[in-house]
Design a protein around this nucleic acid. Structure first.
Lengths: 136, 136
DNA sequence: GCCGATTTTGACAACCATTTTCATTTACCG
DNA sequence: CGGTAAATGAAAATGGTTGTCAAAATCGGC
């Protein structure tokens, strides 16, 4: 019964950006789902293994997952505040990485490319905060 | 006394590739150095904060550090077998990331780019292994 | 030189995401 | 229905990393 796995997948689908396992688990429990943390981890791993979700590591070492629209190779532009993510393609970068690798005699060349920034609405919110400092 | 920090830095300098904190600690102890794990972590963090060493995360979430030749922004071509690392620059990639970010209204755009592969000697060694299978 | 203040150190405990264990439940199949 | 294999999840273990705190080293000032 991959019912649980589908449920996990569904949560990711309805999310704007990358989510952590703990995060997904908390939401599912909050919604009343009967599922264990272990199962969430297993589901996410299975989904990642079969390429149905993308995964990356945050700066503090947490694994985060996202159901991406395209199954093709692509990269991400991630808002470091709200996590909203845009899928981007970069054929030039793919070629560049491949070239660099072979120039140095490396084989089986892969690469990781992620772009981080603050999205328009979040940087607006930050500016707002600066204008009305709450305290301290 | 930043003696300890210098000692940690020295270990990284004489290393070919990225090393983990635990790894550095183990080597220093093996060489008879009197140092605590906590101090190694603090030294590595301090060095990373001041930009004197580069850091990245392995697939299994471990932080690894490297004393790089150049203090300028650059990326790495890392052998996934032996860890040997080549520093590479990619002005085109820098511009690409910046462009993608601003196209989508993102500010404070940063990026991570790492290239992984198997270096010439390691792929030779692997081929060798295949020719003379030890057992199993 | 000597004493108190400040910083650095490191043994140990705490943290926390992730994994493993293992007993229970559930699905499948004749 | 039995019986077997797979899935589940509560609880414990793991392991890298960080926090705590007292002892030790360093630095002034006298």
């Amino acid at each position: 019964m991959s019912n649980r796995r589908d449920a996990v997948h569904a949560v990711l689908r309805q999310s704007e950006g990358f989510r952590s396992a703990q995060d997904v688990y908390a939401e599912m429990r909050a919604e009343g789902a009967k599922i264990g943390l272990t199962t969430v981890y297993r589901a996410l791993q299975a989904l990642a293994d079969t390429g149905r979700v993308d995964t990356l590591r945050t700066d503090d070492g947490e694994s985060v997952y996202r159901a991406c629209a395209s199954g093709d190779h692509h990269h991400h532009l991630v808002c470091r505040v709200c996590g909203r993510t845009v899928e981007v393609a970069g054929p030039a970068v793919e070629r560049w990485a491949e070239t660099i690798g072979s120039e140095h005699g490396f084989t089986d060349v892969t690469h990781t490319v992620e772009i981080f920034g603050t999205c328009a609405s979040c940087s607006a919110a930050t500016a707002e905060q600066a204008r009305t400092p709450s305290r301290a």
